[in-house]
Amino acid sequence: MNKLTQPVPHDEELLGPELSDADVDAWIDRNRDALKVALQEAREQIARGEVSELDMEDIIARGRARFEASKKRV
């Protein structure tokens, strides 16, 4: 069985403390225009049929392919 050589960090150790509702609201306010643009682009892509539906197997297969490709770059 594989044993960890280092303890697994908690999310807070990696990402910092969880944002308060006020922090999230402030972030949304700062990025409102960019979020609107991104949502509009997504809606246009959907309207043009440029999206594909993925099931869990597709997502796992893509993840495995990306992982294999990343191993080859090292």
Results as ranks from 00 to 15, higher is better:
Met1His: 08
Met1Ala: 10
Met1Phe: 04
Met1Cys: 09
Asn2Trp: 10
Asn2Ile: 09
Lys3Tyr: 08
Leu4His: 13
Leu4Lys: 14
Leu4Arg: 12
Leu4Glu: 11
Thr5Arg: 15
Thr5Gly: 15
Thr5Lys: 15
Thr5His: 14
Gln6Tyr: 12
Gln6Phe: 12
Pro7His: 12
Pro7Ile: 00
Val8Met: 14
Val8Pro: 00
His10Asn: 14
His10Arg: 15
His10Tyr: 13
His10Glu: 13
His10Gln: 15
Asp11Phe: 05
Asp11Ile: 01
Asp11Cys: 05
Glu12Tyr: 08
Glu12Gln: 14
Glu13Tyr: 06
Glu13Asn: 03
Glu13Arg: 05
Glu13Leu: 01
Leu14Ala: 09
Leu14Arg: 14
Leu15Glu: 04
Gly16Trp: 01
Gly16Ser: 02
Pro17Thr: 09
Pro17Phe: 08
Glu18Trp: 05
Glu18Leu: 08
Glu18Ala: 14
Leu19Thr: 01
Leu19Pro: 03
Leu19Arg: 11
Leu19Ile: 00
Ser20Lys: 02
Ser20Gly: 01
Ala22Trp: 02
Ala22Ile: 01
Ala22Tyr: 05
Asp23Ala: 09
Val24Asn: 04
Val24Ser: 03
Val24Glu: 04
Asp25His: 13
Asp25Glu: 13
Ala26Pro: 01
Ala26Gln: 11
Trp27Phe: 14
Ile28Asp: 03
Ile28Lys: 12
Asp29Tyr: 03
Asp29Thr: 05
Arg30Met: 03
Arg30Glu: 12
Asn31His: 15
Asn31Leu: 00
Asn31Gln: 06
Asn31Trp: 02
Arg32Phe: 07
Asp33Phe: 11
Asp33Val: 04
Ala34Met: 11
Ala34Glu: 14
Ala34Val: 02
Ala34Pro: 00
Ala34Gly: 10
Leu35Lys: 06
Lys36Glu: 10
Ala38Phe: 07
Ala38Ile: 01
Leu39Ile: 06
Gln40Thr: 08
Gln40Leu: 05
Gln40Asp: 10
Glu41Met: 04
Glu41Lys: 13
Glu41Gly: 02
Ala42Lys: 13
Ala42Asp: 12
Ala42Ser: 15
Ala42Phe: 14
Ala42Leu: 13
Arg43Leu: 07
Arg43Thr: 02
Arg43Ile: 01
Glu44Ala: 11
Gln45Ser: 09
Ile46Pro: 00
Ala47Pro: 00
Arg48Lys: 13
Arg48Val: 00
Gly49Ser: 04
Val51Thr: 15
Ser52Asn: 09
Ser52Gln: 15
Leu54Asp: 11
Leu54Cys: 08
Met56Gly: 07
Met56Asn: 14
Met56Ala: 15
Asp58His: 09
Asp58Lys: 05
Asp58Asn: 10
Asp58Cys: 04
Ile59His: 06
Ala61Ile: 00
Arg62Phe: 06
Gly63Glu: 00
Arg64Gly: 02
Arg64Ile: 02
Ala65Met: 05
Ala65Tyr: 06
Ala65Gly: 07
Ala65Trp: 04
Arg66Lys: 14
Phe67Lys: 07
Glu68Thr: 06
Glu68Phe: 10
Glu68Gly: 04
Ala69Lys: 13
Ala69Gly: 09
Ala69Thr: 02
Ser70Thr: 04
Ser70Leu: 05
Lys71Val: 04
Lys71His: 07
Lys72Ala: 13
Lys72Leu: 09
Arg73Gly: 02
Arg73Phe: 06
Val74Cys: 08
Val74Ile: 13
